[in-house]
Write a protein that binds this DNA or RNA. Structure first.
Lengths: 148, 148
DNA sequence: ATTGACTTTAGACTTAACTCTAAGGTTTAT
DNA sequence: ATAAACCTTAGAGTTAAGTCTAAAGTCAAT
């Protein structure tokens, strides 16, 4: 239960972001230091550190700051309806993430195909691009709507 | 071997992006229609369609257009040195993608934890945020450098 | 008691990735 | 032969997410 309190420069260093970025997140409601010193310095707690960590990994996987703000704002309060709402919202996000993981795997395969198919053998292929490597792999995925 | 040729509006519809976006990609060297009609209309081939597909999925997983342009520009030509270079570049990207897949899984777990831990039981938790759900899960991941 | 390394704010600037507007040429359908 | 639905370019405008600047207050060490 040691009460960690970090000044903005310390948190910035720890999280590898700029101080400006932390203030920017605050201005947009994603991160608020749990208190301020007498002089008005921001003081961040352990929970604030976790929050930054969450923001950064959510960002890395492609959520926008707005989406992240929504996620952080979610709270299951006592009333059972909020619970339903949260579940619906969150489950939709899970589907998004799963889709993105599939995209990732596809891209990873393409990259590996390029590296292996083109440079694997004794003789490198005469000409080999990532798209040719891709062609020999699965088909591309474009939205298949009713559009003819 | 049917020679597909699409005009910009058709490709846009197929790929679910705007025509402006396709022209924007062209201006930035990511996508060039294999030919133009007499009147100057862009005519896209099957290969162009694949290219768009690749661009879009690479984008979804967080690559910038510049990175994607680099990937698309990669070509293993006969000379063996290019092969080495391509391999090095591509393998680095694979590492990035693997890191991002881990981030994804972590976020997915957080989301599921929120949904389950808070709303799972008969009685919903009195107060439950994503960060509290996260706390009961693994620790956050901030860069652990030598910074004290 | 002053230097240097912090911190504060407000507001201007930047970059990536579109998105829109205007002014015009082309194709297709009637 | 003319309207509707396409297409062209150039260039301006927008949004998200920072990043930078200036002018000033604060804290720690000499």
């Amino acid at each position: 239960m040691n009460q960690v309190t970090l000044k903005i420069g310390e948190l910035a260093k720890l999280a590898q972001v700029s101080q400006d970025t932390l203030r920017f997140y605050e201005k947009h409601g994603l991160l608020k230091p749990h208190l301020r010193s007498d002089a008005g310095y921001r003081l961040y707690s352990e929970a604030d550190v976790q929050r930054v960590s969450f923001i950064l990994s959510a960002k890395r996987v492609g959520f926008t700051l707005n989406e992240i703000a929504e996620l952080l704002a979610l709270e299951v309060t006592k009333d059972e309806k909020s619970c339903e709402d949260v579940k619906r919202f969150v489950d939709a996000k899970v589907v998004t993430v799963e889709q993105r993981i599939r995209d990732m795997r596809r891209i990873k395969k393409s990259l590996q195909a390029l590296s292996e198919a083109c440079c694997g053998g004794a003789e490198p292929a005469t000409q080999c691009t990532i798209l040719e490597a891709l062609n020999t792999e699965g088909p591309g995925v474009l939205p298949h709507s009713g559009a003819r």
